[in-house]
Amino acid sequence: MTGSERTRRQCGYELFPHGADVGVRGFGPDRATAFAEAARALTAVVTDPDRVEPREPVAIHCEAEDDEMLLIDWLDAVIYYMATLGMVFGRYEVEIRDHRLEATAWGEPVDPERHQPAVEPKAATLTELAVRHEPDGRWIAQCVVDV
């Protein structure tokens, strides 16, 4: 399923421009889906998430004082595992209770030929940071990523 098809189904991701860097935005019917889609957007900064084979699972836990800092911690955790395991992830399963997040990221080792990795994310930033419930019922989770 492409990003635009998912949009029509009320869940999906997009990248938005920011100066030298790039913004990631996920949306969905609930907070956890919006977080999972924001992480797919993070993958899309590097490569097409649909080109990633979800072969190996990586468990990720985070906890923060509010939704927004939880999004930062979540995306920073994904960046950390991408960097230290040399992997890219195509699929994310996320559960959130209060401000505790339990997730599994599915992916595979980076294959430069096949993934054509563009740019390496350095960190999630507090710029354009928002986690909100829209009047149309959708949740949006977004921030700018330093690349």
């Binding site: 990248l15 938005f16 421009p17 920011h18 100066g19 030298a20 860097d21 790039v22 563009a118 740019v119």
Partner: peptide, 9 residues
Amino acid sequence: AGRAISRHR
């Protein structure tokens, strides 16, 4: 130099 257009564009 700084970027004139975003990566996206």
